[in-house]
Amino acid sequence: MRLGRVVGTVVATRKSARLDGAKLLLVEAMTAGGVPSGPVTLAVDAAQAGVGDTVLLLLEGRAAGAALGRRAAPVDAAVVGIVDAIETGS
């Protein structure tokens, strides 16, 4: 997984049936220090996250589908947790 920050939301009424009801978030990957690092990914929300939240970003299809709880969901990314704190160093 990667650390990420939710930077936006996407509304798409016409989408693949197995995505119905899924909330879609735009998530920017970031380093532990909070520096943006990597493209912005569109992920299904499996943690009730909101814009501005620091989150756990899952970037693998099978696991993302499992996080959404739907068999054979056409997804390759999911937000699976909201981060409260990050501690680094000794």
């Binding site: 930077v7 936006g8 509304v11 798409a12 989408k15 197995r18 054979a72 969901a73 056409p74």
Partner: peptide, 26 residues
């Protein structure tokens, strides 16, 4: 997962358009 919308048919794709966006905010 790009082949999942077409199951049980095995479509050889690694990228599939699965949503049309009404609007987005960022």
């Amino acid at each position: 997962e790009a082949s999942f919308p077409f199951l049980p048919r095995q479509v050889p794709t690694d990228a599939t358009v699965v949503g049309s966006v009404d609007h987005w905010s960022a």
